[in-house]
């Protein structure tokens, strides 16, 4: 799967928040990570450890305070990255179809109705193209946001806990759909989650992060068949991996917290 040079290389990425004197908050502390072409990487870590921050830095929405983020094969251009934020982030004044069409409009691509409809069908919102965001449930809004992120056929998908608000059945179904999309489009996925089970089911590799300031304390390759089928959820190999990830996470959580106040 992985080519000679990675898609993305993070080296010693550090990020501070806040500008007030003495009120700096160190969110990320020396994160180094290679993400290969076609990788499916999960970021697993406790709340507030800087997972969303890391995704924003990778997307170029903020510049890291320290360290570098390099794209050996060229920087992504608009439309190369799809981002699902932790909140649905839909435009309340536009229909779901128009929300999904937005990335195509902004990047000046022609959008056919068929494209929008198939993106919505993919997330099971085919009947809601003309609905407005307020008429959708929280989980449905997240699915609309996923359709929007997919519509430009991005090379890199950044997903920030996209399925946290969904019921188990829908989440399992979307997990499998996401697997299929990843396989078919050969894109790269960075997936943020709190759930050990989700991380184990989806990923080729899991990076475990420590509580604030976020550091990567373990990188676990997931030795399961590339194609994940629903039956896997009851497989002993899967359970063993979940247990291992849980242990890693527990170790990460028990490490002493560093001072929250930076220089």
């Amino acid at each position: 799967m992985s080519a000679a040079s990675p898609l993305l290389r993070l080296q010693g990425v550090t990020h501070f928040y806040g500008g007030g004197k003495g009120r700096n908050l160190l969110a990320l502390d020396g994160v180094s990570l290679d993400v290969g072409h076609g990788d499916f990487l999960s970021l697993l870590g406790p709340s507030g450890c800087g997972k969303s921050t890391l995704l924003r830095l990778i997307a170029g929405l903020a510049a890291p305070t320290g360290g570098t983020i390099a794209w050996p094969d060229g920087k992504p251009t608009p439309g190369d990255i799809g981002f699902v934020f932790q909140e649905p982030t839909l435009m309340p004044w536009a229909s779901i179809a128009d929300n999904v069409r937005l990335p195509l409009r902004l990047t000046g691509r022609k959008a056919t109705t068929g494209e929008i409809a198939s993106a919505l069908d993919l997330v099971g919102l085919g009947d809601f193209a003309q609905a407005f965001p307020r008429e959708l449930s929280g989980g449905m809004k997240m699915r609309a946001a996923l359709a929007r992120a997919l519509v430009t056929q991005p090379r890199l998908l950044l997903l920030d806990e996209p399925f946290a608000a969904l019921d188990e059945i829908t989440r399992f179904r979307l997990n499998e759909d996401l697997m299929r999309i990843w396989r078919e489009r050969q894109c790269t996925v960075i997936f943020v989650t709190h759930s050990v089970f989700e991380a184990a089911f989806l990923s080729q590799r899991v990076a475990v992060m420590s509580p604030r300031p976020g550091r990567i304390v373990a990188e676990e390759p997931i030795d399961l068949p590339i194609l994940r089928v629903p039956e896997l959820r009851t497989d002993p190999a899967y359970s063993a991996i979940c247990r291992k990830l849980s242990d890693r996470l527990a170790v990460a959580m028990s490490e002493p917290l560093m001072s929250e106040v930076g220089p």
Binding site: R56, L61, P78, G79, I81, F83, F85, E87, L102, L106
Partner: peptide
């Protein structure tokens, strides 16, 4: 919303 503004930036 801030994230919406970021979304617009993401797509240039």
């Amino acid at each position: 919303e801030k994230n919406l503004r970021d979304l617009f930036r993401l797509y240039g």
